[in-house]
Each structure stands twice: as structure tokens, then as C-alpha cells.
Write a protein that binds this DNA or RNA. Structure first.
Lengths: 279, 279
DNA sequence: CGGGATCGATACCTGTGAGGTATCGATCCC
DNA sequence: GGGATCGATACCTCACAGGTATCGATCCCG
């Protein structure tokens, strides 16, 4: 199986439309139709059910969609990591969610700088759920993930830190007089709904609550008295002065882990992980 | 990057010889030379240093060898799993080392057969270190691995069982009179060296000790008074009558884990894992 | 019910490039 | 210094990826 065939199939399987998939791939529709037919013939497997009105995945087709995405990520990773390895000073790309782990990351980078194997660390901040993809397709070498929000499936990890969560409220809110609250106290505050975050493709779940893309948007909404939030307690160090926090006893604990692709072999990465575990 | 280019490069990088690599790939040498040159040009990276006498990998080349192998395994897995998914009764392929985990595996298969999501389980036995490869390239769906011997890098796992190890000796050996021994007692027994096992490519490490490929060879050598061995205590249930065992106090504990590719999604596999953890 | 719109498949053409053979040039070995 | 080894180059050929035009089926709507 050629990776070109996989790219074509994944495009069609995602769009469920030959015309749009062809446009996305920058080719005409007929060669795409033929390529998919040929792939099906070579595999001896029907991947798509097509009528002239709709295209749907067969069972085998959805297996190939999942496996094919993983394979294409691996191929892209091979490409990117090879290019990077050839640069005079390769460095490491560390990726983490914007607005999280500031304190921990700063300490990590400081401590790492003293290591004899240290190389330049390029810190990239990205949106929700994007880190795993970046590790998989070679755009990043190592990530700071936050359980239970992020998935560590397929990566090696070391736990770095576990913390409780706080309810973040506008300064002066009545709940702030309490020493601590429960999740039930903050999930249905009148006029202060919890925000919604986009998933990995940028789509928001249905339901109440304002849509937010980053913490600065969120903080502003809370300050305006339009939302509340539950965040890890490390956010306290950089909380705006017009916001305040109170511990939430029964919120899930947040664990920060350092994660990397399992077959990584660089001394620079090994040193970074070692540094992180010794923090 | 096309998977054909990766296959070509991996062949050359493994053989370090264009002629042999071409033969292995079933093509002539000149097109292979050109394909590698073109790959280097497209990547903008030197992958190989060649003189007319020797071919060696550059740093970037060894990165591409490692990443390329992983990517090719993923592509092959996509192919195989898709074909299997299209069969009327897909079933699961479980792989484990020959001669290990007999008892546990039998109990697992028994318990699983009662599960409502159960499908046919095809048990494959394989050599040392081959299981990880089979999980990665789609020949297997799930494996029983034994820590610390096998690597679980890149897989999801659940621990099933931990056991101590025994020294296996010819019946009547003087050490058998003791209630237990230490590793130091068995590593240098006169005339009874510990055996050597092949690594994942079938190569034996240098050193003393007979080369063995499976446990039946090993048992025969021990019975002949030519070797000793340290094995997990579960081997006791099927030990030959001309052998005997004594616990080794400070041998590393052996943990049996069930492992599967992290992006697996089948209910049949989920049920098998659930069954295993409840044993 | 009929005309137009939508969408995947088919027919047919073209150019690129993968792969073959013959040979060169450099290096090593005896 | 002659032969052997090995990767690179030159040159040819044909398979196939990709393009355009068009068909045939289905749906929508007046």
C-alpha cells in the first residue's frame, strides 16, 4: 500500500464526498475515484458504499480510516524528524496547552539548561487536544499533558505533579466566603455557567455556557460576571486581580505528565525527561 | 514522502549496500540509487555517506531509519487490519512467547469465551522479541508480554500477574536441598552456565552459555547437565520430571501484562482486556 | 411528472517518472 | 598494474497518475 493511496482514502473518508476530497487534494475527481477503486481492488475489500447521492464507510473502511491516519502521521513524523535531525543544532520542540503549567515549565527549562546534554528547547503553545497530534506527526518531540483532559495513548510518560482544582469566580462572589466548595455548588450557578472548550477539530459541544478558546478569553468572561470556571490550582500564580478562587473539594485531581513518542532515542530528550522527574 | 521511498531507504540503510538492497527489493541497482538520491534531494538532507567501498548512515539517516521503520509498520498494519476487518468473522489474534503463560492464557481464553462480545481468538506463539513487532505491524491484535524481558513501549497495557523466578536444575543437584538460593549461587555454577537467547533479529550475544531457541531445547540441555536456567515460577506446572526447581530470592520479579496498540477500538478486544483484568 | 442539478463512474488521452540495460569511474586487493 | 567491487550516469521504455469530456443514476422542485 502506498502512502498516496492512504492520503486519498483518508480525504474521501473524512469528506464522504469525492468532489470535495479531490479539491482538498488538489486533483480532479475522476483520478480520485479510480485510485480508490484500485485500492479496494488491491485490498480485495469494499471500503465505501456509494450511491449517486451519498458515500458511507463500510466497517473495513472505518478501520482503514483510523489505521491510515496513524500511518500517515508516522510517515509525516519520519519526514519532519529527519529534516530536523539534519539541522546544525536540532534542539527540541516542547508543546503544551496555552495558559497552563507556566510555573512548572519555567522551573523545568531552568533546571534543564544546566544539564550537560541540554539543547535549545523551542516551546510551542497550542490549542486543546492538539498536542497529541503534534507528538504523533513529528511537529513536536515532547509535551506536557494534563490528565484527565489529555490522552496519553501511545506515548511514554512520567508523572510530574498532581494538583487540586479551584473554582474561579468574579471577585466578591458570595461563594468566595466559604473555605471550600463542591462541584455541585459551581456547576449550576445562576448566570455563571461553566464555559465550553472546542474539541480537537475546533467544534464545540452543544449546551449552555460561553464558547472560549483560551484562558484570557475565559478570565475576561469571568471578570464580566458571565461565567465561572474550575481550573488547576497552579493558575493562582497568574490570576488577574479582578478574579478570585476557592478550592473545589470533589473536582478531579489534575496530573501534569511529560510525554514523548515511545521510540525516541535522543540524549537531549532523555536528559529533559530526567530533569523533569527530578524537579 | 511515499512509502515506496521509505521501503527503499530502509532496505539500503539495513544492508548498507545498494546491490544487496536492490536484490532484496526485487529491483535493479541503478533505479535504487536514483530513488535514494531523489529522496535526499526532496528532503534536502544527506542520508548516506557513500564511497565506492562503503556506505554509512549520517545522523539524519539513522533518524529516518528508526522513524521509517515505525511508519512502514504502521502502513502495513493499516493494510492487514483492513483486510481482516472485512472478513465475515474477524476474530482476534493473540500472540505470546512460546512456552510461557500457559496456565494464565488457558484461564483467560476460558473466561473470555463466556463474554457476550467474545469472538474467535487465534493464538500465535512466536520467538523472543517478535511480539512487539507483530502488534505494531498488524499481524496481531493483542499480546501477553513479560516484563522486564519484553518492552511495552508504545502500547497500552494492563498488569495481570506478578511472579517470582525459580532456578531450574537437573534433578538431584546439590542446590536443590536448600529452601531458596540467590542469583549469585546460580550465575556461575561450574559446568552449568545460563543459556543465551537470540535477540529480535536472531543474533546471540557473545559470551559463555549454550545458545537456545525455545524452552524445550533449554529443558533438554538442563536435563543433560549442560545448563541451568532462571525462569518464572509458572513453569513449574509443566516441568519435565527429570528437572527440579528452587526459588531464587533476588531474581527480578516477572510481570505478565496484556498489551495492545493504543488506538484499538474493537469491542471484542475491550472485552478480552476486561476479562483479563478480572481473572 | 419532467427538467435541471448533483455526484460518482467511465472513456480516452497525455506526460511523468519508475524501472530496465549498458557502461563509467573510483577504490581496493593481490 | 590488472582485475574485482561498487555506486553513479546515460539512455531507453512503458505503466500509470492525472487531466478533460461525458455518461447514468438519483434527487429536488415547480
Amino acid at each position: 500500500m502506498e502512502s498516496r493511496e492512504l492520503r486519498y482514502f483518508v480525504a474521501v473518508a473524512e469528506e464522504l464526498h469525492f468532489g470535495r476530497a479531490a479539491e482538498r487534494l488538489g486533483i480532479a475527481q475522476p483520478p480520485l475515484s479510480r485510485a480508490i477503486q484500485q485500492l479496494e481492488r488491491r485490498l480485495g475489500v469494499d471500503l465505501l458504499e456509494r450511491t449517486s447521492r451519498a458515500v458511507t464507510l463500510t466497517k473495513a473502511g472505518s478501520v482503514l480510516l483510523r489505521e491510515g491516519r496513524a500511518a500517515l502521521d508516522a510517515v509525516e513524523a519520519a519526514d519532519r524528524r529527519t529534516r530536523r535531525a539534519a539541522k546544525p543544532h536540532p534542539g527540541l520542540v516542547l508543546v503544551t496547552k496555552a495558559g497552563s503549567a507556566g510555573e512548572l515549565l519555567a522551573r523545568l527549562l531552568d533546571a534543564y539548561a544546566a544539564d550537560p546534554f541540554a539543547v535549545t528547547v523551542d516551546v510551542q503553545l497550542c490549542g486543546v487536544g492538539e498536542q497529541e497530534r503534534m507528538l504523533r506527526d513529528g511537529r513536536a518531540d515532547v509535551a506536557l499533558l494534563h490528565l484527565p483532559f489529555d490522552s496519553t495513548l501511545g506515548f511514554d510518560t512520567e508523572e510530574l505533579h498532581t494538583e487540586n482544582q479551584l473554582a474561579i469566580l468574579p471577585r466578591g462572589h458570595e461563594l468566595l466566603s466559604r473555605p471550600h466548595v463542591k462541584m455541585a455548588d459551581v456547576t449550576d450557578l445562576p448566570g455563571l455557567p461553566l464555559p465550553r472548550w472546542p474539541d480537537h477539530v475546533g467544534v464545540y459541544a452543544d449546551g449552555p455556557g460561553p464558547k472560549v478558546r483560551d484562558t484570557s478569553q475565559l478570565y475576561q468572561l469571568i471578570a464580566l460576571g458571565r461565567a465561572a470556571a474550575v481550573l488547576p490550582e497552579s493558575c493562582r500564580t497568574h490570576l488577574r486581580s479582578d478574579l478570585a478562587a476557592v478550592p473545589v473539594l470533589d473536582a478531579p485531581k489534575v496530573t501534569t505528565v511529560i510525554a514523548w513518542p515511545p521510540h525516541s532515542r535522543s540524549q537531549a530528550l532523555a536528559a529533559l525527561v530526567r530533569t523533569a522527574t527530578l524537579l
